[in-house]
Design a protein around this nucleic acid. Structure first.
Length: 553
DNA sequence: CGTATTTGACCCGCGC
DNA sequence: GCGCGGGTCAAATACG
């Protein structure tokens, strides 16, 4: 119990270190009302109460110490008073026996002191009672809050389980159907499936393509996106995987090879077509972030090494290729390119999942990438009820700002595009918080598409959300963000997101923060670990141009 | 001298 | 089969 609290307090310290102890309390309210919760937050009320007690006197240097001192100081005087009282009585008795005259004097003095003590006792007693009453009220309120949150958590868990069951059932159903059928049947099936998917009306439709479109796509890819809108698992995709496999087998490191190991063509191994399709989609899925920045790269907390540069068709700006160098063989790559129409817009496209622990700032983007991959994976699962439809998911993810998230599930690179270049409209600020948005993904998404490697996505998402709030508050470079934050503690996370977007557009380094937010919505990544959260990474290579550390860490 | 970047060459898939 | 374009490699170069 103690350790759990400690962890929660660490998180809170991380996110509200700029407000002081009292603000922890206020921040807690904010999270409650905005519908966020975590095991840590549930703990807060009790801790906060203790802290309040401490603050009533002097600021405690550390919570556990404050608790101990608090009780010790209250207990000690009591004992001391009793013992001193007994000693005085004994002394008086002795005194009475010895001299009577002085007894009067002594008694008088004693009486006076008794009266004084009584008054101070009364005042102190009343104060203590009032304080106690306040604390009880507070405690009651916190208990109510706690119950409410518990209820929400239970409901979320139920939804999670239900979705997981549904997902597993679908998986099993598909696996059975494909295993039983012959190889030829699979080909036919797949072809008909592709046809079906191509016919599906705008299922994979973008939620709002930015002005510059997908600059990292070729025209052909863009065309195929709008015309065919196929999803992963197409022969084209398989061929891509095959080619990559060949190339990788030539000179990649073993670690990197593991990244591509499962990327064999689906048709070559009909035993596990579904899993392989899913895996390929996961690994090929991309997250594209569009942000205004004069800097050559946005800060995402990772270390990157440039390994190539090409002139892309249709864009006078060269495209740079980077790979993650935080660990040997990390398969994560990213492409950086300026938008052809607006050179101030920097388009960063991430691909892959890190195979190493990440600093918190880097976790944000990594989570986004992984989660987006999960999202696209979900889209690759044919579903009768359309629950796994990426479009459905996308609408659920960001109902507040259709111009912010674009999901393009085109082969061979299904891409989620986060457009951070557009300032949110006032309408978005005024939008009332949708109830279902309080915990959007655990209910609608995370559980259903959680990869085996990401079992804690839900909690992590919440954690990220908390972290994002902290980032948003701590930076406070955007008056809009701060204003919106201060307007109401009941603002929805969507509004926070919109506000953060405003901040990001003025400071590209905020991208990581927003990514954290998106990530938290989407469901988190297996790379995330709450234990890593409160520590600042010591990046030894901060002087390199590629290792942009998140400012403020 | 070690490390990061640059840049031309190469590989591969795809469309014609 | 050929050319195009995306992506990657690796030798050359730059830099601290």
């Amino acid at each position: 119990m103690e350790r759990g609290w400690g962890l929660a307090l660490d998180n809170s310290a991380d996110q509200v270190g700029f407000f002081g102890n009292k603000q922890v309390f206020g921040d807690h309210h904010h999270h409650h009302r905005s519908g966020t919760t975590s095991s840590g937050l549930i703990m807060f009320p009790v801790n906060s109460r203790v802290r309040e007690d401490d603050d009533g006197g002097a600021a405690a240097s550390s919570p556990p110490r404050g608790e101990v001192d608090f009780f010790a100081e209250r207990n000690k005087p009591t004992v001391k008073t009793e013992s001193s009282h007994a000693e005085t009585s004994a002394a008086c008795r002795e005194f009475n026996v010895n001299t009577g005259l002085q007894l009067v004097t002594a008694n008088t003095g004693s009486d006076e002191s008794t009266v004084d003590d009584g008054v101070s006792y009364d005042v102190e007693d009343k104060r203590a009672k009032i304080e106690l009453a306040h604390l009880q009220v507070e405690l009651e309120r916190m208990n109510t809050e706690n119950q409410r949150l518990k209820g929400m958590l239970t409901q979320v868990n139920e939804n999670y389980s239900a979705l997981q069951m549904h997902f597993m059932a679908l998986m099993q159903h598909q696996q059975n159907s494909t295993t039983d059928s012959t190889k030829q049947n699979q080909i036919v099936e797949r072809k008909s499936e592709e046809k079906k998917l191509a016919i599906v009306p705008r299922q994979l439709l973008d939620l709002g393509v930015g002005g510059c479109g997908d600059d990292l796509m070729t025209e052909e890819q863009s065309n195929s996106l709008s015309e065919e809108r196929t999803i992963s698992g197409s022969p084209q995709n398989n061929n891509m995987e095959l080619s990559r496999n060949k190339r990788i087998g030539r000179d990649e490191s073993p670690e990197s090879d593991s990244w591509h190991r499962n990327k064999t063509p689906k048709l070559d191994n009909p035993a596990k077509p579904v899993e392989q399709t899913a895996d390929a989609t996961m690994r090929k899925a991309r997250v594209s972030v569009r942000a205004r920045s004069e800097a050559p790269m946005i800060s995402d907390g990772c270390q990157w090494r440039k390994y190539g540069q090409k002139m892309a068709k249709g864009n006078p700006c060269p495209r740079a290729y980077y790979r993650c160098t935080m660990a040997v063989g990390c398969p994560v790559r990213k492409q950086v390119q300026r938008c052809a129409d607006d050179r101030t817009i920097l388009i960063t496209t991430y691909e892959g999942t890190h195979n190493h622990p990440l600093p918190p700032a880097a976790m944000a983007m990594a989570s986004t990438t992984s989660a987006a991959a999960s999202m696209l994976l979900s889209g690759s699962m044919p579903s009768a009820d359309g629950l796994m439809n990426p479009n459905f998911l996308a609408r659920t993810i960001l109902p507040c700002s259709s111009n912010m998230a674009t999901i393009s599930a085109s082969a061979p690179f299904p891409t989620v595009t986060l457009d951070l270049t557009q300032t949110p409209t006032p309408l978005q600020y005024q939008r009332p918080p949708p109830v279902q948005f309080q915990l959007p993904f655990p209910q609608n998404f995370a559980g259903a598409v959680q990869t085996p490697a990401a079992p804690q996505g839900f909690g992590q998402g919440l954690y990220n959300q908390s972290k994002f709030s902290g980032l948003q508050m701590s930076r406070a470079v955007s008056s809009e963000a701060a204003q919106v934050q201060g307007q109401s503690s009941q603002q929805s996370f969507a509004d926070s997101l919109s506000a953060a977007t405003a901040a990001i557009t003025s400071d590209p380094n905020f991208t990581a923060a927003l990514a954290a937010a998106i990530s938290s919505i989407i469901g988190g990544s297996h790379q995330n670990n709450a234990n890593q959260s409160s520590t600042t990474p010591n990046n030894p290579n901060v002087n390199t141009s590629n290792s942009n550390n998140f400012p403020g860490n």
